[in-house]
Design a protein around this nucleic acid. Structure first.
Lengths: 252, 252
DNA sequence: CAATCTTTTGCAATCTTTTGCATTTTTTTG
DNA sequence: CAAAAAAATGCAAAAGATTGCAAAAGATTG
């Protein structure tokens, strides 16, 4: 492989995943960490990324453009790990409905070398997915949520019905023994329909979302096939999940 | 094989694949690496590619970006003025279908203090419109064009039928006495349906688009209500426009 | 048409760049 | 502060570039 080709690949990975460790890049590109380090120095000189201890991060031009909210470093890491676990579950060559959520976005960033037919109501997800060579993207219609840049409303729900996918990946706002919850009906109806259309429904949530509820109930626990989270839930809630045949995956 | 033929083949390969190793080219063209090396030196002298360790990479991405920047700079002022003239026409409190085009984007930027119900198939327009306080945005469904970030396909067309708006604002790829043209059918069908649904159809085009045609005919001139451009068209074309009741607005 | 000249091509010898490893220095983290 | 991880540095092997050369193919010329 040409050096230039390797540099292009590194650029692409950093752009999509926003960061990468040298070990990961070395493994992926089949060269030593030393070589990766030298490559990263070149790319840093070109102002394409910023080197960090053990890897590199993107310069995040997107962040300025899209007004992403700031997230704490610790929280981010958990999210990254949940995303990684989730991506491991996804078979190649499949169709996926992606719910609008920052955790789901982290999952998407891990999927860039899989062949996927993607359906989403999130403009930010759609733009991210558009960078993937092997991915086809369909965007749902609807009214645009002006802050969070997702589509919702009856048009959105109606259109989702036309699809049937291998997976639905949902970001969780609140989940308890009573089911999945969210704070607005508009979003809830969209999520509810997305759940209907996916063969395997995967919910991703950090532990702060566990055992909490919200205004609008999206569905019962038995509608969820897999819950991916960072900590093992409390016994009572865990039993509820097991009784509803929810497959639980934690980070340990 | 003639040397010229071999050089052409190398050019073609580099253009398509953006880079190639000498080993690959030598194998493909059945000559030694030394010969390939000499060929690459020739092509580098002609500024057709850039040689690297072990192969060569294409220049045209860099060149394309440069050209694009040049082009946008040059046309920027004209585009801005066309956009300004167009925005003047738009009444407050109206519904508008926005076609995907950079000139249309310039128009949108002039509309930020008007109350608008906006419909678009462009993700970039949608995100821009989302920043306007008084604007409501609906996004059309469809397959995502991964480079230009607009939605197209039968889903898009079908959905447009459900709307009826005060205006449709179209970016023009080519316009002549024979009508409005574009280079792909997929885009053309979307534009055609957008034209159907707007009470007033406004086409925006700088003078380079006038009196030219393209592969796919979108509509006849009489489907256009207003054409906004920078220079008065040539007499013959002007007469065609007038015969078809196209209102012509120029910068003077 | 034959002798000569030019161009192209592959090969060998030498120089340069790239890469991985070992060692030392620096940074991070508990 | 000390252990661990990562960065920097120097070095040697491998891959590639350059140069010179000679054989083969083609062009030129008398």
């Amino acid at each position: 492989m040409l050096i230039e080709q390797r540099l292009e690949k590194i650029k692409a990975i950093i752009e999509v995943e926003r960061s990468a460790t040298m070990a990961y890049l070395a493994e992926k590109l089949k060269v030593s960490k030393d070589t990766i380090r030298r490559d990263l120095i070149k790319l840093e000189d070109q102002n394409i990324l910023r080197r960090t201890h053990g890897g590199a991060v993107s310069l995040d031009r997107e962040a300025a453009i899209f007004n992403y909210q700031q997230r704490s470093k610790k929280h981010n890491q958990i999210k990254e790990q949940i995303a990684y676990k989730t991506a491991e579950l996804i078979k190649n060559n499949c169709s996926i409905i992606f719910d609008s959520s920052t955790t789901v976005e982290a999952v998407i960033r891990k999927l860039h070398n899989k062949t996927i037919y993607a359906i989403t109501n999130s403009l930010t997800h759609a733009i991210l997915l558009a960078q993937f060579k092997k991915t086809e993207v369909a965007v749902l219609p609807g009214a645009l949520h002006k802050e969070q840049l997702f589509l919702y409303g009856s048009e959105t729900v109606k259109k989702i019905e036309h699809y049937h996918t291998d997976y639905t990946i949902l970001g969780v706002f609140a989940i308890s023994a009573d089911g999945l919850f969210i704070h607005t009906e508009a979003e809830g109806l969209v999520k509810r329909q997305m759940i209907e259309q996916g063969d395997t429904v995967i919910a991703v949530a950090d532990h702060t979302k566990l055992n909490t509820t919200g205004l609008f109930k999206v569905c019962d626990l038995n509608a969820i096939d897999v819950l991916i989270t960072d900590q093992v839930p409390q016994q009572e809630f865990l039993t509820s999940l097991q009784n509803n045949n929810v497959n639980i995956i934690t980070l340990d």
